[in-house]
């Protein structure tokens, strides 16, 4: 029993040592920032303490409802729309190689549109507001999902299809359990790229054409020379980006659990 407890304590110390190793650099950066900026009189790099208090004032929680809420809502709507339509069209194109081949130049060109350049056109067409923001997110984030899905579906081993046919598996099962599943590593990879694009698009579209949102707040405080306020919005967006990434990693682990198992736990 003594031995057992010794092992667990040792495991625990090792784990906390590993954690300490990973957290020492971020902690050092924050401390260095705090110390280096503490006496700062520079307009653009205010003391971190001021930024933190601005953060508390603005984002805990008076502006969460009017600004952070809409941002997240539009981001979620645009991202989901892009993912779903990307998967649907991608599966169709993947299953019909001749259609994919015929549309290849168009898809290649549409994917290469620098989506931020479309924001002024989107403001003209859809006006300022949520539909424009969701529109530009979809127009930018749909391509990685669509092309990756098509690629994944096209890459399914033909033998799998033959087996499914000889067992007379219905098209619905074939689609949901076979095609989507086999293509899921690529679909998820596309969705990961799409997520970071979507975040860029929501922030940018709020800066250019919106009357609320975190991006709007960020640019407004810069224009009003409220520099601590600007920094606090930057920090909030950084934290949001990080949290979304962690959430996505959880989603990925859930969806691809079978795939990781098949390939061994190495990656």
């Amino acid at each position: 029993m003594a031995f057992g407890s010794q092992v667990t304590t040792r495991g625990l110390t090792r784990r906390s040592a590993a954690l300490a190793l990973e957290l020492v650099v971020p902690a050092a950066i924050v401390v260095a920032w705090w110390l280096a900026s503490s006496g700062s009189t520079s307009l653009y790099f205010p003391p971190l303490s001021k930024i933190v208090s601005a953060f508390r004032q603005i984002w805990l929680f008076s502006h969460v409802g009017p600004d952070a809420g809409p941002s997240l809502e539009h981001l979620a709507a645009g991202y989901l729309l892009a993912s779903v339509s990307g998967v649907v069209v991608g599966v169709a194109i993947g299953l019909l190689p001749s259609v994919g081949e015929a549309l290849a130049p168009i898809l290649e060109a549409l994917r290469a549109v620098p989506a931020l350049a479309l924001v002024p056109a989107a403001v003209l067409i859809l006006g300022i507001g949520p539909s424009m923001q969701i529109g530009v997110i979809v127009s930018a984030a749909v391509w990685p999902v669509l092309l990756n899905t098509a690629d994944g579906v096209r890459g399914i081993d033909p033998q799998v299809n033959d087996v499914a046919r000889s067992y007379r598996i219905g098209w619905r099962d074939r689609l949901l359990r076979m095609v989507l599943r086999a293509a899921s590593p690529q679909i998820v990879a596309g969705m990961r790229t799409a997520l970071s694009i979507a975040v860029v698009m929501i922030v940018f579209s709020e800066m250019v054409g919106s009357t609320n949102g975190i991006g709007y707040q960020l640019l407004q405080s810069q224009r009003a020379f409220d520099i601590p306020g600007m920094w606090s919005a930057m920090i909030l967006l950084g934290i949001l980006g990080y949290l979304l990434n962690i959430l996505f990693r959880g989603f990925e682990r859930g969806v691809l659990a079978w795939h990781r198992g098949m390939r061994g736990a190495s990656d």
Partner: peptide, 29 residues
């Protein structure tokens, strides 16, 4: 491996920051 583990969290955090966030600051500078 040591350096990688020391900087993993920092890199993970920095790379998830949407780059456009820096635009207002860069414009000021």
């Amino acid at each position: 491996t040591l350096l990688y583990r020391m900087f993993r969290v920092t890199i993970d955090f920095l790379r998830t920051i949407p780059p456009v966030v820096l635009l207002p600051l860069a414009l000021l500078l």
